[in-house]
Amino acid sequence: MKTKLFLDKEQFQLTISRLCYQLIENHFPFNNTVFIGLQPRGTLLAERIHKILNKTTGVSELKTGSLDITFFRDDFRRRENIPVASETNIDFIIENKKVVLIDDVLFTGRTIRAGLDAMLSFGRPEKVELMVLIDRRFARHLPIEPDYTGKTIDTRSSDKVKVTWKETDGEDGVWLLTDNDNQPQPVKKK
C-alpha cells in the first residue's frame, strides 16, 4: 500500500470551516434544522461541525445525533463476515425538520441509501440534505449526490480514502491509500 497525503491539517480545517459557513448561509438560526452523523466515521465530522457552529454563531440549541445504518445495509447475507452495529443516538424528533446527513467519505452511495432508510424510522423530515467531507467522483452505484462537498477526489475503486481526526487518531488529515500493484506501469521503450 502506498500512502499519500491528500489534505493536510490546515487544508482540512479550512475545508471544514467553509462547510460550516455554507450551513450558516442556508440554515441559520438552525431552529428547524438537525444534524445526523452516520456511524462510525461520519459522527466525528458531525461533532466537529456542531462544535464550530456553536462557537461561530453562539446558537447553543443545535441538535446533533448519530445514526447507525448496519441493519439497513443491502449486502447482509452476501458477505463472509457479519456487519456489527454501532450506537444510534437520536434524542430529538425529525418529523418536519430539515435534516443534514453527514458522512466523511461518499463512495458508492450505498451507505447513504441505507442511511436514508434508517433515518425514516425516526419520522418524516421536511427535507434532507447530504454533506460529505470527501466525494470520490465517478464511483457511484446509485443516483446520490452531495449538497455540500469538502473536496472532490478522483480514485480507482481499489484505492482507499482515509480520514483521520485529531480526537481519535491524533491528527486531522485525509490520506489516499493506493495498492502498488495497481499503479500504471511506465511503458517500456524498445
Binding site: D68, F71, F72, R73, F76, V84, A85, D117, F122
Partner: peptide, 26 residues
C-alpha cells in the same frame, strides 16, 4: 457478540418505527 448486538436491537425496538429490513429475504 450476541449481547453487543442485543444492545443495538434494544435501541431499535424503542424507536417510533421498530422494524429493520435485515432479514427480508429470510
Amino acid at each position: 457478540l450476541i449481547f453487543q448486538t442485543a444492545d443495538n436491537f434494544k435501541e431499535v425496538i424503542n424507536r417510533p418505527i421498530k422494524k429493520v429490513p435485515s432479514l427480508r429475504d429470510v
